[in-house]
C-alpha cells in the first residue's frame, strides 16, 4: 500500500514533467522551426498592421453611425455589412466573429427560435443581394448563408454563396463578373485526399485579393 502511494506520487511528478512540459515544448520547438507561419496562426498583415488570421473568419462590416455616434444595443456596438466585400456566414459568437470566445448557437432543430433566426438571415441575405441579382429567391439562398457555423469563426462560405455575392461585388467594384468568379476559384479549398469534406471559399483571402485588384483600402496583403 505504502509502496503504491510512493510510486503513484513519483509517477505523477515524472509524467507531469515528461508529458506536460517536455512534450508540449518539444512540439512547440519543432513547429516553430519547421512551420512557423502555421504554428503562429497564419497571420495576415496589410501595410504592417495585423488584419487577422487566414483561417479565422471575420466580419466585413462597419460600425453603424447615427449623428456621428456609434449606435449601441445593450452596450454592444451595432454593425452594418459593407457591400464592397464578400460576407461571411452568420456567427453565434458575441459580438460576431469574436475569436477570443468561440461559440455554437446551440439552437434546437424544432425550435421556433431557430426558425426565426434562419428566416431573418434569409431576409437579410435577399435584401443585400437582390438589387444586384433580381431573380434570386428565398429557395435559392445557400444553406450556409442562412445558418450559424459551429465555431462562429468559419473562414469559408460555399461556392454557391460566393457566386451569388459575386454579382454584388462586380457591380459595386465595377469589375467584370468573370474576373470575380475567377478570383473565387483561386481561393476555393478542395476536399482532403479528394473525398474528405466540402470545398469552401476563403472569404478573407478573397476580399484581400479584391482590394489588391481595385485599390479598395489599398496596399498589398502578405503572409507572416
Amino acid at each position: 500500500m505504502r509502496r503504491d502511494v510512493v510510486t503513484s506520487i513519483i509517477g505523477m511528478v515524472v509524467f507531469t514533467l515528461l508529458l506536460g512540459v517536455v512534450y508540449p515544448f518539444a512540439i512547440t520547438g519543432i513547429s516553430q522551426v519547421a512551420f512557423p507561419g502555421n504554428a503562429n496562426g497564419q497571420k495576415l498583415y496589410l501595410k504592417g498592421r495585423l488584419i487577422g488570421s487566414r483561417i479565422i473568419g471575420q466580419q466585413f462590416a462597419t460600425l453603424k453611425m447615427h449623428n456621428g455616434k456609434v449606435v449601441q444595443e445593450k452596450g454592444v456596438p451595432l454593425t452594418e455589412q459593407d457591400p464592397r466585400y464578400f460576407q461571411s456566414r452568420p456567427s453565434a459568437t458575441k459580438p460576431p466573429y469574436n475569436a477570443a470566445e468561440s461559440s455554437f448557437s446551440n439552437l434546437g432543430p424544432n425550435s421556433t427560435v431557430t426558425e426565426r433566426a434562419i428566416a431573418e438571415n434569409i431576409k437579410a441575405y435577399l435584401e443585400m443581394e437582390r438589387p444586384y441579382l433580381p431573380t434570386l429567391t428565398a429557395a435559392q439562398v445557400p444553406v450556409d448563408a442562412a445558418t450559424a457555423s459551429a465555431s462562429g469563426l468559419d473562414p469559408e462560405i460555399s461556392q454557391a454563396n460566393a457566386r451569388i455575392q459575386a454579382h454584388r461585388i462586380a457591380a459595386v467594384r465595377h469589375l467584370p463578373l468573370s474576373t470575380v468568379d475567377a478570383l473565387i476559384a483561386n481561393y476555393t479549398s478542395s476536399r482532403g485526399l479528394g473525398f474528405s469534406g466540402e470545398p469552401g471559399v476563403n472569404v478573407l483571402q478573397l476580399n484581400l485579393a479584391l482590394d489588391r485588384l481595385t485599390g479598395g483600402t489599398g496596399g498589398t496583403g502578405g503572409g507572416d
Partner: peptide, 26 residues
C-alpha cells in the same frame, strides 16, 4: 426549422445542402 423557414436543404451546384446550423463549411 429550416423547412418552415423556407431554406432549401437539397444539394445544389456549389452547396451541399442539409442541416448546416452549427456545422462548418469545410
Amino acid at each position: 426549422a429550416q423547412h418552415v423557414a423556407g431554406l432549401h436543404t437539397h444539394v445544389i451546384a456549389g452547396s451541399g445542402g442539409g442541416n448546416m446550423e452549427g456545422k462548418e463549411q469545410r
